[in-house]
Protein backbone atom coordinates (compact mmCIF):
# COMPACT_ATOMS: atom_id res chain seq x y z
CA UNK A 1 0.00 0.00 0.00
CA UNK A 2 1.13 3.54 -0.68
CA UNK A 3 1.57 5.64 2.39
CA UNK A 4 2.27 9.32 2.86
CA UNK A 5 5.78 8.44 4.11
CA UNK A 6 7.32 6.17 1.50
CA UNK A 7 10.19 3.81 2.41
CA UNK A 8 13.68 4.39 1.02
CA UNK A 9 13.57 1.06 -0.81
CA UNK A 10 10.24 0.82 -2.55
CA UNK A 11 8.63 -2.58 -3.16
CA UNK A 12 8.27 -3.31 -6.86
CA UNK A 13 4.46 -3.34 -6.69
CA UNK A 14 4.34 0.14 -5.13
CA UNK A 15 6.85 1.39 -7.68
CA UNK A 16 4.54 0.17 -10.44
CA UNK A 17 1.56 1.94 -8.88
CA UNK A 18 3.52 5.20 -8.52
CA UNK A 19 4.75 4.96 -12.12
CA UNK A 20 1.19 4.51 -13.41
CA UNK A 21 -0.14 7.22 -11.12
CA UNK A 22 2.60 9.62 -12.26
CA UNK A 23 1.93 9.00 -15.95
CA UNK A 24 -1.80 9.46 -15.34
CA UNK A 25 -1.15 12.70 -13.42
CA UNK A 26 0.87 14.10 -16.33
CA UNK A 27 -1.98 13.26 -18.71
CA UNK A 28 -4.56 14.69 -16.32
CA UNK A 29 -2.65 17.96 -15.97
CA UNK A 30 -1.98 18.23 -19.69
CA UNK A 31 -5.59 17.44 -20.65
CA UNK A 32 -6.89 20.10 -18.26
CA UNK A 33 -4.36 22.56 -19.66
CA UNK A 34 -5.41 21.63 -23.19
CA UNK A 35 -9.05 22.36 -22.34
CA UNK A 36 -8.08 25.72 -20.84
CA UNK A 37 -5.99 26.60 -23.92
CA UNK A 38 -8.83 25.54 -26.25
CA UNK A 39 -11.35 27.69 -24.37
CA UNK A 40 -8.88 30.57 -24.39
CA UNK A 41 -8.37 30.17 -28.16
CA UNK A 42 -12.13 30.13 -28.80
CA UNK A 43 -12.60 33.29 -26.73
CA UNK A 44 -9.85 35.08 -28.64
CA UNK A 45 -11.19 33.95 -32.02
CA UNK A 46 -14.71 35.09 -31.06
CA UNK A 47 -13.38 38.47 -29.90
CA UNK A 48 -11.43 38.87 -33.12
CA UNK A 49 -14.46 38.01 -35.28
CA UNK A 50 -16.57 40.49 -33.29
CA UNK A 51 -13.96 43.17 -33.89
CA UNK A 52 -13.88 42.38 -37.59
CA UNK A 53 -17.67 42.50 -37.84
CA UNK A 54 -17.73 45.90 -36.10
CA UNK A 55 -15.47 47.46 -38.73
CA UNK A 56 -17.65 48.72 -41.64
CA UNK A 57 -16.91 47.00 -44.92
CA UNK A 58 -14.86 49.25 -47.21
CA UNK A 59 -16.57 50.73 -50.23
CA UNK A 60 -16.03 48.59 -53.30
CA UNK A 61 -12.86 49.85 -54.88
CA UNK A 62 -12.42 50.41 -58.53
CA UNK A 63 -11.13 47.45 -60.50
CA UNK A 64 -8.18 46.18 -58.51
CA UNK A 65 -4.97 46.40 -60.42
CA UNK A 66 -3.58 42.95 -61.17
CA UNK A 67 -0.71 41.92 -58.92
CA UNK A 68 2.67 42.32 -60.50
CA UNK A 69 4.12 39.04 -61.59
CA UNK A 70 7.54 38.15 -60.30
CA UNK A 71 10.28 38.13 -62.89
CA UNK A 72 11.52 34.79 -64.18
CA UNK A 73 8.34 32.78 -63.49
CA UNK A 74 6.60 32.98 -66.85
CA UNK A 75 4.20 35.51 -65.37
CA UNK A 76 2.45 33.01 -63.11
CA UNK A 77 3.77 33.72 -59.61
CA UNK A 78 1.89 36.29 -57.54
CA UNK A 79 3.67 37.93 -54.64
CA UNK A 80 1.66 39.21 -51.69
CA UNK A 81 3.66 41.57 -49.46
CA UNK A 82 6.84 39.69 -50.32
CA UNK A 83 9.84 41.25 -52.01
CA UNK A 84 11.01 39.57 -55.19
CA UNK A 85 14.44 39.09 -53.60
CA UNK A 86 12.90 37.17 -50.68
CA UNK A 87 10.68 35.17 -53.04
CA UNK A 88 13.72 34.14 -55.10
CA UNK A 89 15.47 32.98 -51.97
CA UNK A 90 12.43 30.99 -50.79
CA UNK A 91 12.04 29.31 -54.19
CA UNK A 92 15.72 28.39 -54.21
CA UNK A 93 15.43 26.85 -50.70
CA UNK A 94 12.33 24.84 -51.65
CA UNK A 95 14.01 23.58 -54.84
CA UNK A 96 17.12 22.63 -52.90
CA UNK A 97 15.11 20.81 -50.20
CA UNK A 98 13.11 18.93 -52.85
CA UNK A 99 16.22 18.12 -54.85
CA UNK A 100 14.61 19.34 -58.08
CA UNK A 101 15.75 22.02 -60.54
CA UNK A 102 13.93 25.32 -60.07
CA UNK A 103 12.63 25.38 -63.64
CA UNK A 104 10.71 22.14 -63.07
CA UNK A 105 8.74 23.61 -60.18
CA UNK A 106 5.65 25.81 -60.48
CA UNK A 107 5.05 28.41 -57.83
CA UNK A 108 1.56 29.92 -57.79
CA UNK A 109 1.85 32.55 -55.09
CA UNK A 110 3.97 33.48 -52.11
CA UNK A 111 2.33 35.15 -49.15
CA UNK A 112 3.79 36.08 -45.80
CA UNK A 113 1.85 34.42 -42.97
CA UNK A 114 1.39 37.06 -40.27
Amino acid sequence: MLTSKLPELLPIGDAGIIALLGYATVFFGIILLMVVVMIMGKLFIAAENKKKAAIPAPAPAAEEAPKAAAPGTAGQLKLHDVESKTAAMLMAIVADKMGKPLNELRFISIKEVK
Binding site: L10, I12, A15, G16, I18, A19, L20, G22, Y23, V26, F27, G29, I30, I31, L33, M34, V37, M38, G41
Partner: peptide, 24 residues
Protein backbone atom coordinates in the same frame (compact mmCIF):
# COMPACT_ATOMS: atom_id res chain seq x y z
CA UNK B 1 -3.04 23.22 -32.14
CA UNK B 2 -3.67 22.56 -28.42
CA UNK B 3 -4.16 18.84 -29.06
CA UNK B 4 -0.43 18.59 -29.58
CA UNK B 5 -0.12 19.00 -25.80
CA UNK B 6 -1.20 15.36 -25.53
CA UNK B 7 1.94 14.26 -27.35
CA UNK B 8 4.02 16.11 -24.78
CA UNK B 9 2.29 14.02 -22.11
CA UNK B 10 2.57 10.71 -24.00
CA UNK B 11 6.32 11.25 -24.37
CA UNK B 12 6.82 11.19 -20.59
CA UNK B 13 6.46 7.38 -20.73
CA UNK B 14 10.24 6.97 -20.41
CA UNK B 15 10.31 8.96 -17.15
CA UNK B 16 8.06 6.53 -15.31
CA UNK B 17 9.32 3.40 -17.08
CA UNK B 18 12.93 4.25 -16.14
CA UNK B 19 11.82 5.00 -12.56
CA UNK B 20 10.20 1.56 -12.41
CA UNK B 21 13.26 -0.04 -14.03
CA UNK B 22 15.60 1.56 -11.49
CA UNK B 23 13.55 0.13 -8.62
CA UNK B 24 13.33 -3.24 -10.37
Amino acid sequence: NPKSLLLGAAAQLGVFAAFFGAIA
